[in-house]
Design a protein around this nucleic acid. Structure first.
Lengths: 148, 148
DNA sequence: GCAACAAGTTTCATTTTAAGACTCGTTACC
DNA sequence: GGTAACGAGTCTTAAAATGAAACTTGTTGC
């Protein structure tokens, strides 16, 4: 099954998201964008990704509506890659990955970064799905409903 | 830079998570596991992934501590792949991907599934990062703090 | 006891990736 | 205004991953 066939076939939002964004480089590009990176060369240097792969990824991320290309803000005639609102909506995805990694992928004495609330300096609590009434929802407390 | 070198080098939890889980198949395997799939053949049929690739993924997911192998619950001598607590903690990641996909990757009249609260039948509200005091945190309201 | 099944493994053609050289327009500087 | 350095890619080629299908080995049903 090719990627394209799959995207056409599936009605599962997870599968479609995965196809667009669940790639080693795509997610790190988005992470860097949240940290303010905008230029091809800065993404390339920061990530250490091959230029050809970066060019491909940025193109498909633009096509997917996650980034948009705009004139550079420093007055040069180059361009910048900036997150669209759709791209900014990936924030919860990146935070979820970050928090999971913080918790499980570092040894107890191993240095790692942590996401903190700018206003208070306190680390953000674990992000979790909640119901409309505020209850935390565990995997067994949710099910997938088919909508038409 | 090889994957291995990268994992050693980085202190960014997002990067480590991405390396372990941000793969087309790995995330869909985890999604299916949340839906109750446990057997090799069921993953393979449901996903349409090549057997060899599935075998590789399952092996690395077990090595990563996301799945564990246990005797089949139906009394046969086969085995099952079951999420560990660490694997179950990926629930927010899957939900975040799902909700983003629901919102941006379907046309207005296109059928798609939706995650609902089993107790009330209502769709789950958009999961978002919150501060300890309950404020919703946008990308600009958080920053990455280096911890040692 | 034998056919069918489960869970892989192997093989091989195709696709994707990584690394680095190469291109070409832009910018900085003398 | 000429030229060296830079930014943003593209091209080339070797290495790695993927997909499809055949093959293996142990298990189950009958």
């Amino acid at each position: 099954m090719t990627k394209h066939q799959m995207s056409q076939a599936t009605t599962c939002p997870v599968a479609r998201s995965v196809e667009v964004i669940a790639d080693r480089w795509a997610l790190l590009i988005v992470r860097d964008a949240f940290d303010g990176v905008r230029r091809f060369g800065d993404f390339q240097q920061g990530l250490g990704v091959a230029r050809s792969v970066l060019a491909n990824r940025l193109k498909s991320l633009v096509e997917a509506g996650i980034f948009q290309v705009q004139p550079a803000s420093d007055g040069t005639s180059y361009q910048e890659y900036v997150l669209t609102p759709q791209g900014q909506s990936l924030f919860p995805v990146v935070v979820a990955l970050r928090q999971w990694g913080e918790r499980y992928l570092f040894g107890p004495h191993e240095a790692h970064s942590q996401l903190v609330d700018t206003a208070t300096g306190q680390p953000l609590p674990l992000m979790q799905p909640v119901a409309v009434d505020g209850r935390t929802i565990a995997p067994e407390q949710a099910w997938v409903n088919k909508v038409v």
